[in-house]
């Protein structure tokens, strides 16, 4: 008897949880479905759910009309580039703070976190003018630089919380065996740090891919990543739902897949190690 009640309870709770999850996911599913409709079907009344004329012409047209892959490529360069440069700068810093902490280490970490709290509009005007005067507006490298800096605190923090968990005794043992600092880093630390670095990499690519303040303000066409490109659909002409959906689907699909892989690291990374 008791068992039957628990089973029924499980079914009811499952149904509620599935409904909420599907409701949250629905806008994405709807975008995906709409991307395969004709523009007519996309605005049909009643809405067409599955039984419409499936077509891939929207994808072809988005590419033909606006060189979609240029923007896709820009997003890849900006997200991956800024993350790799950020890692190169942050790995030594996080290593030093985790393994040779001083009294001020915590203050420095806190200060780094506080730079993240500075609202971007506070820096927008000088950065915009500097970029304009240096001809960096609408340039990929300009955006790589800015995104490196805005994500640097998060990268340092994430790496720090991972490095913190590597047992210090192992380093002491290596030092006693006469390993130099370089050897210590290359042969002892790096292999143990790779998982943490990998998840930091993943999470920061996601953050940089979706960054939409600096990319919107500092790029217009040639260097425009997908965030800026999609924003150009805010004032379109004629019917465009299916094309908007196709462009959107391609913009979010790669990051959705990366994101699903990084769920666990996401919690830890975005909470600066406070929730694990």
């Amino acid at each position: 008897m008791a068992r039957r009640i628990t089973n029924r309870r499980k079914v009811v709770i499952s149904l509620i949880a599935w409904s909420i999850a599907l409701a949250l996911f629905f806008p994405i599913l709807w975008t995906f479905l709409t991307s395969f409709k004709t523009e007519g079907d996309a605005v049909a009344t009643p809405p067409q759910f599955l039984f419409f004329h499936w077509t891939t012409e929207n994808y072809i047209e988005v590419q033909a009309r606006s060189d979609y892959f240029l923007h896709f490529f820009n997003s890849v360069v900006i997200a991956v580039g800024s993350t790799l440069i950020g890692l190169a700068i942050a790995i030594p810093a996080a290593w030093a703070m985790a393994f040779a902490p001083t009294k001020r280490t915590k203050d420095i970490l806190m200060w780094m976190l506080s730079t993240k709290m500075m609202p971007p509009v506070g820096a927008l005007i000088p950065i915009y003018l500097i970029f304009r005067n240096m001809g960096l507006l609408d340039s990929r490298w300009g955006l790589v630089g800015v995104l490196t800096l805005i994500n640097l605190p998060i990268i340092v923090w994430m790496l720090y919380t991972y490095f913190k968990e590597i047992p210090g005794e192992i380093l002491e043992a290596a030092r006693m065996d006469g390993a130099s600092l370089m050897k210590e880093i290359v042969y002892v630390l790096t292999p143990m740090a790779v998982p943490g670095i990998a998840s930091t990499l993943l999470l920061n690519i996601i953050l940089a891919w979706n960054e939409a303040f600096w990319t919107l303000n500092l790029s217009t066409s040639e260097a425009a990543p997908l965030t800026t490109f999609i924003a150009s659909y805010s004032s379109p002409e004629g019917l465009f739902y299916a094309k908007l959906s196709a462009a959107s689907t391609m913009a979010i699909a790669p990051i959705l897949i990366l994101g699903w892989f990084s769920q666990k690291q996401l919690v830890r990374g975005l909470t600066f190690g406070a929730v694990k």
Binding site: L24, F25, P27, I28, T31, I206, W209, N210, A212, L216, L226, T227, T228, I230, A231, S248, A251, I252, I255, L256, L258, G259, W260, L266
Partner: peptide, 9 residues
Amino acid sequence: APFFVMPTV
């Protein structure tokens, strides 16, 4: 999933 959707989309 919605967390990974870029703001403009």
